[in-house]
């Protein structure tokens, strides 16, 4: 039997940092939003990993089962996923409007155009 130990949390942190790097280092606005999505999924994974109880089952009451995983993180993350897609689409809508106004969605080009206009 292999013990996972803290591996789940470390994997979440690594994913989180990949997402953060994509969001801050890539100039493309869609790529930034994809980075934020990766970041988001890593946070979901972190919460769900904390809620796991070894030997437990899914929190749906049934005869003969004593150990359930913690239902509270599940509730929080379940709603957060749907809120996440709603806010992601708001961000994408903003990207579309920026693309129409500036004719590019690269951050550095947008800043250049702003400087020229000032």
């Amino acid at each position: 039997m292999i013990s996972v130990g803290l591996f789940n949390y470390w994997a979440c942190m690594v994913l989180m940092m990949i997402g953060l790097y994509t969001a801050i280092a890539r100039p493309n606005l869609i790529k930034k939003l994809i980075g934020l999505s990766i970041f988001q999924v890593s946070v979901f994974l972190l919460y769900i990993s904390i809620g796991k109880v070894s030997g437990g089952t899914a929190p749906i009451l049934a005869e003969g089962i004593v150990v359930y995983s913690n239902p509270l993180p599940h509730v929080l993350i379940l709603t957060a996923i749907v809120v996440g897609i709603a806010t992601l689409s708001l961000g994408l809508a903003l990207v579309v409007r920026i693309g129409e106004a500036y004719d590019t969605i690269e951050e550095d080009k947008i800043i250049e155009q702003d400087l020229v206009n000032d």
């Binding site: 990993s49 809620g51 796991k52 749906i60 993180p73 993350i77 379940l78 996923i81 996440g84």
Partner: peptide, 14 residues
Amino acid sequence: LDAVDVAFTEAAVG
């Protein structure tokens, strides 16, 4: 990780 509801949502949404 036993989070069936969450998995369901993520599969449909993500």
